[in-house]
Amino acid sequence: MNIQSVKLSVIKMPLKKPFYTHLETIKERESIIVEVHGHDGFEGYGEGVAFSSPWYTEETVKTSYHLLKDFLIPLIQRFSIKHPSEAFSLFSAFRRNHMAKAALEMALWDLQAKREGKPLSQLLGGGTKKIPSGVVIATSSLKEAITQIEAYLEKGYRRVKIKISPDNDLKFVSELRKRFPTLDLMADANSAYTVDDIDRLKALDEYGLLMIEQPLGNDDIIEHALVQKQLKTPICLDESIVSFEDAKKAIELGSCRVINIKIGRVGGIGQAIKIHDFCNTNKVPVWCGGMIEYGISRAHNIALASLPGFTIPGDISASNRYWEEDIITPEIKVEHGEIHLPSNPGIGVNLNRKRLKEVTCSQELFSFHK
Rank of each mutant, 00 (worst) to 15 (best):
E338Y: 15
R298L: 08
S319R: 09
T281M: 01
L341G: 11
S362N: 08
L307E: 00
N350K: 12
N352L: 05
W287N: 07
A299V: 00
G295T: 06
Y294K: 06
F310P: 12
P330R: 06
R321A: 03
G346Q: 01
G289L: 04
K283W: 02
G346S: 06
R321F: 03
I332Q: 08
V359D: 03
V286L: 05
H300Y: 06
N350M: 09
H340V: 15
I347E: 02
E338R: 11
V284P: 00
G309E: 00
S306N: 03
H300D: 02
F310R: 11
L356C: 10
N344K: 15
L351N: 11
Y294C: 01
A299S: 15
G290V: 02
R355H: 05
W323C: 11
R298I: 01
A303G: 11
E293F: 05
I296N: 01
P342I: 09
T360R: 11
G346N: 03
A303E: 02
S317T: 08
I316F: 00
W287D: 03
I296R: 08
T311N: 09
F310A: 14
H336Y: 11
A303D: 06
P345G: 10
D315A: 12
K283Q: 09
P330E: 03
A318D: 02
P330K: 14
A299D: 00
N320A: 11
P285R: 11
R353Y: 01
E364I: 04
M291I: 09
N344E: 13
C361N: 05
A303K: 14
L307A: 10
D277W: 02
V359G: 12
K283H: 05
I328P: 04
I339Q: 08
T311I: 14
C279W: 01
G290P: 00
G295M: 01
I332A: 07
S367K: 12
L365Y: 10
W287I: 08
H300S: 07
Q363D: 01
P313N: 09
I327W: 00
D315G: 13
I316Y: 02
G348C: 10
F366V: 09
L365V: 14
W323H: 12
L356F: 10
P285C: 10
P313F: 06
A299I: 01
E338A: 04
P345K: 13
N280F: 06
S367T: 14
N301D: 08
G309S: 05
A305P: 00
E335G: 07
T311W: 11
N320Q: 13
W323F: 14
I328K: 14
G290S: 09
